[in-house]
């Protein structure tokens, strides 16, 4: 159950948690295109592994579909998304990762895979076919920016590695984006979750610093479109517990969720207070939350000790 619940917990503001349907699921599709040369193959493999690992921290492994090497073809991908569209509910979310090279001839964008390439029209059709909204697609390829023309709308969150179709050089963005999914640095709000926005910010800065360090003009400028990127989680870094078999811990977890919700509400109303008043209120809430966390830790340690001693007795 946990991962399904977790997805929703991470998708929505804390305050809404108690009233929402908890059956939503995250469906991840990772598509690795052609590298062309070993250097890119190695890099794309690495990105794929990182994204897979991150995705499996967020959803059941069975909901993570991977297409790479000989598995990738336009037919297999279209078939996969057709099935996915049937399987998904309105509440479910899809996250699609395109790792590879792209091209743009002035009229059509193509994501390079073995055989017939996937086009911008295909991607639009895929996104349109998915039930519900707020799905996520990241395209790390060269020329990927051009797909924004057809895909950009309020319904989905889209990230591209380039500003338009004319940024044709092989990109660095994918490396940094994949890296962000396991990075404490990317986790700006320290909630042990890397959101789409955090991953994008991390990768965008990484690309900028990369080109600066090389003394080169940047040949790619990543873009993000759509709403809700800060509340769509891509990776769990560990440690965030939302449910426990021990009812005492479970009560405390609920209590902490409420406190987190209060903190978020306070932050939204920040302008209503003087700075000193705001900090005082924030401090009180966080202190309370910290105390609850401490109690959870103590009870968890106690449970573990109990468990260990039971094992010892056996």
């Amino acid at each position: 159950m946990c991962k399904r619940l977790l997805l929703l917990l991470l998708l929505l503001p804390v305050q809404m948690l108690l009233t929402q349907n908890v059956q939503a699921a995250l469906h991840v599709t990772i598509i690795q295109g052609l590298g062309g040369i070993p250097l890119f193959d190695v890099s794309f493999n690495d990105q794929r592994h990182k994204i897979r690992e991150a995705s499996e921290s967020m959803t059941d492994a069975a909901l993570v579909s991977i297409f790479s090497g000989d598995d990738v073809s336009r037919e297999s991908l279209l078939a996969h998304f057709a099935t996915l569209a049937e399987r998904m509910s309105e509440e479910d979310r899809a996250a699609i990762f395109l790792i590879g090279h792209g091209s743009y001839d002035g009229e059509q964008y193509k994501f390079n895979i073995p055989g017939v390439d996937i086009t911008d029209t295909d991607l639009t059709d895929i996104m349109d076919s998915l039930p519900g909204q707020n799905h996520f697609l990241v395209n790390t390829s060269s020329s990927s920016g051009v797909i924004l023309e057809s895909l950009e709308n309020d319904q989905h969150i889209i990230i591209t590695a380039t500003r338009n179709g004319n940024e044709k050089n092989a990109t660095e963005f994918g490396n940094f984006f994949a890296e962000s999914l396991a990075s404490d640095t990317a986790d700006i709000n320290k909630n042990n979750i890397v959101s789409i926005q955090e991953a994008f910010d991390f990768a965008e800065r990484g690309v900028t610093e990369f080109f600066e360090s090389q003394g080169k003009l940047a040949t790619e400028h990543a873009q993000i479109r759509g709403n809700g990127a800060a509340s769509f989680s891509l990776s769990r870094l560990g440690g965030l517990e939302t449910f426990n078999e021990d009812p005492r811990i479970n009560t405390l977890l609920s209590q902490r969720l409420e406190l987190d919700s209060d903190i978020e509400a306070l932050q939204l109303r920040r302008n209503e207070y003087t700075n000193a008043d705001y900090i005082q209120r924030l401090q009180a809430l966080i202190l309370e939350s910290a105390q609850v966390s401490e109690q959870i830790d103590e009870l968890s340690e106690g449970s573990e000790l109990e468990l260990e001693s039971e094992v010892d007795v056996d």
């Binding site: 440690g239 924030l282 401090q283 966080i286 939350s289």
Partner: peptide
């Protein structure tokens, strides 16, 4: 510390320092 926690309210090491100080 409060600047850190304002950015990241769930930041455990910072929370722990706050607890210690309090």
């Amino acid at each position: 510390l409060m600047t850190a926690l304002d950015i990241a309210p769930q930041y455990r090491p910072a929370q722990q320092l706050l607890l210690e100080l309090s």
